[in-house]
């Protein structure tokens, strides 16, 4: 079974081409990093897969079916700075929003939905902050709330846009533990990531992207210096010094 299958996907903003002829096939059960330089189209790729962009050509299949929000197969963590954190609401309420797709239009969240939301908040170590206004949370705590909301979606395939940006070390460890746990449960997770130092520790599958796919496959095969140089356009002179990347040998 393939978690994600993308064929001939291209995206243009106005006249500018952002993604060009992207083809991907990724089996279920992997923790996949989407890696590439700034402006490579990493976030655009996720948005295009989730059918949020009008100027898109090509086809996308998730779990071998066209995307349909009513299937509840997809969980999503947008970039943290995409929302206004001064919005008057608390942490539990935001996590509960992850249940809205299951609840359906018009109906109200049930006690069971609230219990699920509370458990997800517990999973990210934030149960003590359930009643806290989201504006009073630190950046790392806000990111955990976003992750908890995606967990509350109880999806099969997760897409996360830069979940490690601007978070503290403890939050980073919590998030990666949860992602590995999702993988152990047979879920598929796609994460936009830009820290090459940690990438090969975190992910067992990689998509290297720079407007088009430069490499995609298991980490040990794709995370090579040649592939990275191609994706980053030869600007990676510092790569020789990275020690944590085991695949450089």
């Amino acid at each position: 079974m393939d978690a994600l299958q993308v064929k001939k996907l291209s995206v243009a903003y106005e006249e500018k081409v952002v993604l060009k002829n992207v083809n991907l096939t990724i089996p279920v059960g992997h923790l996949t990093g989407i890696i590439g330089p700034n402006g490579a189209g990493k976030s655009t790729l996720i948005k295009a897969i989730l059918n949020q962009l009008p100027n898109k050509t090509g086809t996308v299949h998730i779990l071998e079916r066209p995307l349909n929000p009513k299937d509840h197969t997809v969980g999503y963590v947008p970039q943290r700075n995409a929302v206004d954190w001064d919005f008057p609401t608390n942490a539990l309420d935001v996590v509960l929003m992850g249940r809205y797709g299951h609840i359906g239009m018009i109906k109200k969240p049930s006690t069971k939905d609230k219990q699920i939301a509370l458990n997800c908040l517990k999973d990210v170590g934030m149960e003590a902050y359930a009643d806290r206004s989201i504006g009073q949370l630190s950046g790392g705590q806000q990111q955990r709330v976003f992750l908890a909301r995606a967990l509350a979606q109880e999806a099969e395939v997760y897409f996360m846009d830069e979940p490690f940006v601007g978070v503290d070390a403890a939050t980073e460890r919590t998030i990666i533990a949860i992602l590995k746990d999702l993988k152990a449960k047979g879920k598929s997770v796609f994460v936009v990531h830009h820290d090459l130092q940690t990438a090969s520790d975190y992910f067992d599958w990689m998509i290297l992207l720079n407007q088009t796919i430069t490499a995609s496959g298991p980490t040990e095969q794709t995370f090579t210096e040649d592939n990275l140089q191609e994706a980053y356009g030869g600007k990676l002179f510092f790569m020789d010094q990275t020690k944590s990347n085991k695949s450089f040998n």
């Binding site: 948005k47 989730l50 947008p78 995409a82 206004d84 929003m97 809205y100 909301r149």
Partner: peptide, 22 residues
């Protein structure tokens, strides 16, 4: 009464709202 949670979510986080089909 009918669309409270929908208008709330699409106000707070339209990108996420779109992803769940709102």
């Amino acid at each position: 009464v009918f669309f409270y949670k929908e208008i709330k979510l699409s106000t707070f986080d339209p990108v996420f709202a779109l992803s769940i089909g709102l």
